[in-house]
Amino acid sequence: MSNQPALTIAGDNDLSTNAARHAIAAVPDDPVYLWRSIADPVVSKAPVVVLADVAERAGFAQAALDAGIPAVSLPIKDPDVDLKQAIADGRLRLMSRLHGLPTLARLQQDAMNGTVGRRYGVFASHRIPVNFADELDDVVDDLVTYCCSLIDAPLSRVSVTTSDLGTSETAGWFILARFADETIATIEVAAVLPEADEPAGELLIEVTGSDAVLRAAPEQQGVLIRGAEGVSRSNWYAEPSDFLLQRATQLRDLETNTTSLSAMKLMQKRFEAATANQAVEV
């Protein structure tokens, strides 16, 4: 048994705690360090996976990089110059919470292994309840990061329309993104569903190509009950941390960081394109 952790999981939330628990269960001989606070020192040179809440991700990632440790993180909002450079040179890689959904983990693998033949486009829509509108930016960044992982090509052009959808703040993002390999992504996120207890909403991902079309609707992983009192459903999404840790390992093994670089650029350029109301070349 090694005395040094084989993996460091950063963050102090349900996701990071569950990930640490599952990682330990899966590989009992490889200790996992749960790095709960940025104030704490990094205890080993083990790879870092940042599953922290969005406000803390940049801090954890920067601390890991400062210690000379490569990191994989959930989307980072407004990365500074150092973090951008780390993404550009591959020391920091990005994944999406959506990679934790088994359906989408499988779809991502199929999209990358040539199942669709010549890829035409990616369509992704995520509708969330109106009472989760304050999470819209995070939902967009997760969807953008996931879509880029289906394409793995440099981003070349972005057009964006935003809408308040009758409210006082931005409630919808409608993104058209063109990539260097000619793949075109249509990404739509809107807080437009009736109020609900959970933010999951309706998610649809399609990848079209010459040989196949991949279509995933993860919300179909649920139990739908139509009864006298109306319709109710309970989702039974599998624990996402297993798939997130698998994705982190995949990312670390990639020779290039094209996916993360395109995701970072798309997350940034969407604001520029929305303000300009014109396509932005990348």
């Binding site: 486009g121 057009s159 075109i184």
Partner: peptide, 11 residues
């Protein structure tokens, strides 16, 4: 107004 992207996909 409208924003659009297009391509030739098929062979």
């Amino acid at each position: 107004s409208v924003q659009a992207e297009s391509r030739i996909a098929g062979e």
